[in-house]
Amino acid sequence: MQLSLGPLQYLWPRQQVFDFYEQMLDLPVDVIYLGETVCSKRRELKTGDWLDLAANLARKGKEVVLSTLALIEAESELKTLRRICRTEGFLVEANDLAAVEQLASQGVPFVCGHSINIYNTHSLAFLIRQGARRWVMPVELSAATLSDILQELAGQQLQVETEVFSHGYLPLAYSARCMTARYHQLPKDNCQFICREYPRGLPARSQEGEPLFTMNGIQTQSGAIYNLLDQVPRMRALGVNLVRLSPAPSGMEEIIRSFDAARRGEPVQVEVGEPTCNGYWFAEPGMIFKSGTSL
């Protein structure tokens, strides 16, 4: 089983981004997804900077995948997308069908990210025939559905790697509106990159103080951290190839080391010091946390 580091969801200052990935070189993550997937206005790193970083990390032994924007609304965004899809030497993660269209037309293999809606074997088989080499399961699907899909697929002689989003705030929705700018009463087209103030998003709680969502620009994330650490053995049994961890501004080394221990078969326990959830995996409301003993 490989450990992957998903694309950075937040806007961090340029140097922080470089420092973060520099740190990853010494940690047991095998695959690193790089690029802006949330908001095309963010420019701490331009596309060229991401490509340079990709080349650098690849040279130092990491498998690098170029990740792409999830919500594509403008011609300028399609232009960036085409540039990334034409870059040679890297696998590309498609997060919108515009990317699948580009990559499949060129006949190159690709990764389907979790915002490509693959809910059944028919859709997955179809995309494999278009060139999908790996898919990241949509985050609201359960282990039971994954098991059904992989069993059905096994009967069809189609090969694909399966990746599961396993740690971090869950990406739940994408909007035309920017919720972070809205909080600051800034118009989106003069947002002043205010989301840079929130390196792990801006928490929204219910009026009773319950953590509900994390606002990250145009993306809405879960208010609790999705954590499948103690499900790594089950993922292995199901045939999951990659366990995805989502970049966090602090504590990343510890997260990676705990998942690395889990994949080596060491006993692990989910720490629930901060709001934690795993409901989707058990076909329950996503916000729920089922503790190890109830499994």
Binding site: A173, Y174, S175, R177, Y280, M287
Partner: peptide, 17 residues
């Protein structure tokens, strides 16, 4: 206001989107 087909707020709180 979310891109339709890519919003899971409802299933995060209930079990259905």
């Amino acid at each position: 206001i979310m891109a339709e087909g890519r919003c899971m707020l409802s299933s995060y709180v209930t079990d259905q989107s």
